[in-house]
């Protein structure tokens, strides 16, 4: 699959401060890409470079295999983390204005806006001012304005902040729908559960360097420690525990189950087979729980950043 965006050795300095150091990334067309990293790592700088708000000191950015240029602006939709609306302008008017800035003509912008307003059931907001809306309501408007011009590449920076769970789900569904319709999505967030849920690929930026990137599944495979969660209802738990101890490295259980009398995390060595473990525990006991420990995005994040 082709890349909609290729970032090649991009660096950016502000005075003595390095915001991005030689960062390279490829973003597959039609994917949801998680751009992760602690605060101040350089994510926003990278996003601003993609949006041509700032220029990189060195390196190249290709959009659809052509160097990033002013024409690309209309193919990109950006929902910044720090976002606002005009306080004194009506919702409809400013949505129309922002859509026109993205290159839509007045009529198209109006009809597209009406579609979205109906979809979100907010048609009666058109003449309201921002001051009359809640934060979540304003976020909806900002979301609409970001996607209205049907961009090929969408960049969402903390899109769910300010939403209640119901509206967050609504937005999440819309994001997935946009992806299904062919858009590529860059998704920057600190909420690892939504990364887990949405992202196929991720990149982790820490202290202006990219420290990790690839398919989320591959990364998880790399990070897993061959550990299995074991929960059994054994006739003789002490004997089984000793037996396990003699063959494997045991750690404290990291899971919650009911109806078992022995709970333990079992770490396998490279030459050991999980089937042998399963055979052993199923001999004189009822297996309640048997699952490989897959590191969560959250654990990967914390681990990588702390060990960087």
């Amino acid at each position: 699959m082709s890349n909609i965006l290729s970032i090649d050795s991009v660096s950016k300095h502000y005075g003595n401060f390095t915001a991005l150091n030689n960062v390279s990334l490829n973003i597959r067309e039609g994917s949801i890409f998680g751009l992760l990293g602690p605060n101040g790592a350089g994510k926003t700088t990278l996003i601003r470079i993609i949006n041509q708000i700032t220029m990189p000191d060195s390196g190249k950015v290709l959009f659809d295999n052509t160097p990033l240029n002013i024409e690309h602006i209309r193919y990109i939709g950006y929902l910044p983390e720090e976002r606002g609306l005009y306080q004194k302008m009506s919702i409809g008017d400013q949505a129309l204005y922002l859509a026109q800035l993205k290159g839509l003509d007045n009529t198209t912008a109006k009809s597209e806006l009406n579609k979205w307003f109906e979809k979100f059931e907010i048609s009666d907001w058109w003449d309201k001012k921002v001051t009359e809306l809640s934060k979540g309501m304003a976020q909806k408007i900002q979301f609409i304005v970001t996607v209205l011009h049907k961009p090929k590449l969408l960049i969402f920076d903390e899109p769910f902040s300010g939403f209640d769970p119901i509206n967050a789900n609504l937005i999440k569904d819309e994001i997935i729908k946009l992806r299904d319709n062919g858009a590529t999505i860059i998704f920057s967030t600190h909420r690892m559960e939504s990364v887990e849920e949405l992202c196929e690929d991720i990149a982790l930026i820490n202290k202006s360097n990219k420290i990790l990137d690839g398919k989320l599944d591959d990364i998880k495979r790399r990070f897993k420690s061959n550990t299995f969660e074991v929960g059994v209802d054994s006739d003789n738990p002490d004997v089984l525990n000793k037996e396990l101890e003699s063959r494997y490295e045991l750690t404290r259980p990291s899971f919650r189950t009911i109806g078992d009398n022995l709970k333990v995390n079992v770490k396998l060595k490279n030459n050991q087979n999980p089937n042998d473990l399963l055979k052993l525990i199923s001999q004189n006991s009822k297996v309640i729980h048997f699952k490989e420990v897959i590191p969560s995005a959250n654990e990967i994040f914390i681990n990588s950043v702390e060990n960087d």
Partner: peptide, 13 residues
């Protein structure tokens, strides 16, 4: 201060 500039600035020089 309203931060709308963050949204505008991605479309306009």
């Amino acid at each position: 201060t309203s931060r709308i500039v963050e949204i505008i600035i991605s479309s306009v020089k």
